Amino acid sequence: MRALSIVVVSHNAKAVLLACLGRLWQHYPEAEVIVVDSGSSDGSAEAVQEGFPQYRLIRSQNRGYPAAVNQGLAACTRDYLVQMNSDVYLEAGDLEALWQAARAEPKAALVGPTLVTPQGRLQSFGPLYAPYYWNLRAPRAVAWISGALTLMPRAAYEAVGGMDERFFFYNDDLEWCARARRKGWRVLLVPRRVLHLGGSSTPKDPRFLAEGYRGGLLFSRDYFPALHGLHRKVVWLEAHLRIRLDPDPIRKAGYGLILNKINEGDLDTPFLP
């Protein structure tokens, strides 16, 4: 599809990335593809240069997913901008479904599919997201969609902007969708099932768990200040209980990190890299 620019972000996931790019070349050979490698040390960038010289490669320090996405989006030249994780495996027709939904809704800013696991189950993003899937037979306006794969018309990108780089890895999609909606745009979930492996760039590191909580607190502080105090107390209590009861030392360490962050009152500094 000549109308599409596709940004693929990857970090230390060479095999998964190459499989992803192979599918893009098979199904979308006319698209502009930009690969942003976020400081990989596994030879990912070199493998892309060798195996897919037709694609533009941007080597970047690992400053988080939003920063990598923004670098890629800034380099796009087409009318519809797709950003995706390297562990999203596309089939023919997947991006067409998103593109058609965006064209049918002039105020669509972010359009995403229903993601499925390798086992064929709908991917869970928590109880607040689950109702979006219920009886979904046509594109539906929702509060937010997963940032694993989104399509954005250029007009919406110019009006809304890219991802918020204060979020390192989690909650960036939540903030992006909330900002788009506050600016009068719509977020659409499309009943097109797309395979998402999930977790390909997420190591077992307590900072990743803590970063998820930090991003959530940052989001509530900026978008729901009246509820932020309660949210902070709930996370503080959960962290204490998890530290006491959780048998996993990695998770226990992560809860200790977010507890320290709350006690210090510093939500703006990420735990990573």
Results as ranks from 00 to 15, higher is better:
Arg103Cys: 13
Asp266Ala: 06
Leu241Tyr: 12
Ser146Val: 07
Ala109Leu: 01
Ala138Pro: 00
Pro29Thr: 02
Arg214Asn: 10
Val8Ile: 12
Val190Gln: 06
Asp205Phe: 04
Ala45Tyr: 07
Glu32Trp: 14
Ala178Gln: 13
Arg186Asp: 09
Pro113Met: 08
Pro273Lys: 08
Val8Asn: 05
Val16Trp: 02
Arg166Thr: 03
Met152Phe: 02
Ser40Met: 04
Glu30Trp: 05
Tyr55Thr: 11
Pro29Ser: 08
Glu91Gln: 13
Gln119Gly: 07
Val116Asn: 00
Pro206Ser: 12
Asp37Phe: 07
Ala13Met: 12
Leu267Pro: 00
Glu32Lys: 12
Tyr157Val: 02
Leu110Phe: 14
Pro191Lys: 10
Trp134Met: 10
Leu122Val: 15
Ala68Gly: 13
Glu105Gln: 15
Arg232Met: 14
Asn171Thr: 11
Lys107Phe: 04
Glu50Gly: 14
Arg179Gly: 01
Gly147Asp: 15
Pro249Gly: 10
Ser10Tyr: 03
Ser201Lys: 02
Ser38Tyr: 06
Arg166Ser: 08
Leu237Val: 12
Asp248Phe: 07
Ser40Tyr: 03
Tyr80Phe: 15
Ala97Asn: 05
Val8Leu: 06
Pro270Lys: 02
Gly254Trp: 05
Gly256Asn: 00
Glu264Leu: 13
Trp176Leu: 15
Ile250Phe: 10
Gly51Ala: 15
Tyr223Val: 04
Val35Met: 02
Leu151His: 09
Ser220Gly: 00
Phe219Gln: 01
Ala148Cys: 13
Glu46Ser: 12
Ile145Trp: 01
Gln26Phe: 04
Leu136Met: 03
Ala75Gln: 13
Gln123Met: 14
Phe224Val: 05
Arg186Val: 02
Tyr157Asp: 00
Tyr65Ile: 14
Ala97Trp: 02
Gly229Tyr: 08
Val187Leu: 06
Leu218Cys: 08
Leu245Gln: 13
Tyr213Cys: 13
His228Cys: 04
Arg214Ser: 11
Val48Glu: 07
Pro247Val: 07
Leu189Ala: 03
Trp134Ala: 14
Ala92Asn: 07
Pro203Cys: 01
Ile145His: 02
Ala178Trp: 11
Ala45Leu: 09
Glu264Tyr: 06
Leu151Ser: 11
Ser40Ile: 01
Ala74Pro: 04
Cys76Leu: 03
Pro270Gly: 08
Phe219Glu: 01
Leu197Ala: 12
Asn85Ile: 01
Ala75Asn: 01
Leu241Ser: 12
Tyr80Met: 09
Asn70Ser: 11
Val160Tyr: 06
Val16Lys: 10
His27Phe: 15
Ala178Val: 06
Pro106Gln: 03
Ile262Leu: 15
Asn263Trp: 14
Val194Ile: 03
Trp99Ala: 06
Leu95Phe: 10
Val36Lys: 09
Thr202Arg: 14
Val7Gln: 04
Ala31Leu: 11
Arg221Ala: 14
Arg186Tyr: 00
Ala31Thr: 08
Gln123Asp: 09
Pro206Asp: 10
Pro29Gly: 10
Asn62His: 14
Glu32Gly: 09
Val142Lys: 00
Gln123Cys: 06
Ala130Gly: 03
Arg221Phe: 08
Val9Cys: 09
Val194Asp: 01
Leu217Gly: 05
Met84Leu: 08
Glu46Gly: 05
Val69His: 14
Glu158Tyr: 04
Gly184Asp: 07
Gly265Gln: 04
